[in-house]
């Protein structure tokens, strides 16, 4: 499935948060939206979930406008919010089971354990309530849930936030594997190095404008130095970066 933003304008509380951004993510690709706080990264994700409808322009999934059938759009998406929002009074198993049932899918305990193994959540922690979890552990449960939902599209909001370096590496490997299996992945982050490591494309977002876009070519990863410089420069003067748009 393909994700596409066409001249997407989004307003929140009367303020233009996205100002006509356009990009696309093909099936099997990982697209990383990089940007500072308030750049409009999370807003972009929410527009693909239909929580925010465009003032103009389009958010498309497989060439179909999200707003036309929000329910259908959400069925194809697994969304991993920034704060790994789950129920604190439930344990990892119960959380996953509950969310999966609400999504209309089911998984055996073995499947759930398999997904939790994939995200390397310690077995002895799985039956503890989430109120006793660290941020990183919660993030792992949320990622396991996203894996188990087995949707065509993954929207990841700061997915590595709160994870330790090893877990970040493991997560990036996991994302790559999922993309290689044909999942379409859009992640937003301000981790330049992580984005360069995992993404096929990187979009640089500043104050609601896409000021730069970088692509990996021939299986090579994107040059971190180039992106880092562009990211730093965009914070100072976004207009200069827009001229460096390579893709």
């Amino acid at each position: 499935m393909k994700l596409q933003a066409n001249s997407l304008y989004i307003e929140r509380s009367g303020k233009q948060v996205l100002q006509g951004i356009s990009f696309s993510v093909d099936q099997g690709q990982v697209y990383a939206l990089l940007g500072g706080n308030g750049a409009g990264k999370s807003t972009t994700l929410l527009s693909f979930l239909g929580f925010l409808l465009p003032a103009s322009g389009q958010a498309l999934i497989d060439a179909k406008e999200v707003g036309a059938d929000i329910g259908a759009a959400r069925k194809n998406i697994a969304y991993l919010p920034e704060s790994a929002s789950l129920y604190e009074h439930l344990n990892a198993h119960e959380n996953i089971e509950y969310f999966l049932q609400l999504a209309g899918s089911a998984a055996t305990q073995a499947h759930i354990d398999g997904a939790l193994d994939q995200v390397a959540l310690a077995p002895d922690a799985r039956l503890r309530k989430l109120r006793d979890y660290s941020k990183g552990m919660r993030q792992k449960v949320a990622i396991a849930l996203a894996i188990l939902r087995d949707t065509d599209i993954l929207l990841l909001d700061e997915p590595t936030s709160g994870l330790d370096p090893n877990a970040i590496d493991e997560f990036h490997q996991l994302v790559r594997q999922l993309a290689d299996k044909g999942k379409t992945i859009l992640m937003v982050t301000h981790d330049v190095y992580g984005a360069c490591q995992v993404a096929d494309k990187i979009g640089l977002l500043h104050s609601g404008c896409l000021v730069g876009e970088f692509s990996a070519e021939d299986g090579n990863s994107i040059d971190t130095e180039v992106v880092h410089k562009a990211f730093s420069a965009s914070a100072k003067s976004p207009s200069k970066i827009s001229q460096t748009e390579p893709a």
Partner: peptide
Amino acid sequence: APLMALGV
């Protein structure tokens, strides 16, 4: 957000 993203 995650709840409604499930289609609820």
